[in-house]
């Protein structure tokens, strides 16, 4: 066993959530637990933009000869957003954190920074997506693709992520 660099007494922690819009802009950034070095807001924007670009490229890396989108070339069928689409990067891991990416069908990306051993990140992500669709998308004062400033979203995230971990 080597010395594991645990930054805080918690063994399983959700560090932060980033939301990236369709165009690659950072629209939400929230730290739940300290542990990662704080990035400047400029660095966060660069991280969001870079991740967006890399994600777009990785989506296009497919095994040679693999079908592009099954049924996608059939002109008689309407485009189905739920049909198989190649995903880009889903997980990025380092020795200190794990970055899980979830992209919605409309192209919004949720990046969750957790401890490497954090279990059930999928469920957490799913719940965060639910909270987003409730308290952000159903909020009359939110303009899509713009930075998210919704008090109820913040509060419900706190209630969910902080209590859970």
């Amino acid at each position: 066993m080597y010395d594991f660099p645990l930054p805080c007494p918690y063994s399983r922690v959700v560090f932060a959530l980033l939301v990236i819009n369709k165009a690659g802009g950072l629209i939400y950034n929230r730290e739940f637990h300290p542990g990662l070095t704080k990035l400047s807001s400029n660095d966060l924007l660069i991280l969001a933009g870079t991740f967006h670009g890399v994600h777009a490229i990785t989506r296009n890396i497919n095994p040679a000869g693999a079908p592009q989108v099954p049924g996608g070339n059939n002109p008689n069928l309407p485009p189905n957003p739920m049909s198989y689409q190649p995903t880009g990067i889903e997980v990025l891991e380092s020795s200190n954190f794990r970055l899980q990416c979830f992209q919605t069908v409309t192209g919004t990306k949720f990046l969750l920074l957790t401890e490497p051993q954090q279990p059930n990140v999928d469920t957490t992500m799913r719940r965060i997506y639910e909270l987003y669709s409730d308290f952000v998308m159903k909020n009359p004062f939110y303009t899509v693709e713009m930075p998210i400033r919704c008090e109820k979203f913040d509060r419900s995230l706190d209630g969910f992520v902080k209590i859970k971990s």
């Binding site: 409730d134 308290f135 159903k138 909020n139 009359p140 004062f141 939110y142 400033r149 919704c150 008090e151 109820k152 979203f153």
Partner: peptide
Amino acid sequence: YVSVPREM
């Protein structure tokens, strides 16, 4: 589901 912005 409504969060009123601070200025309002």
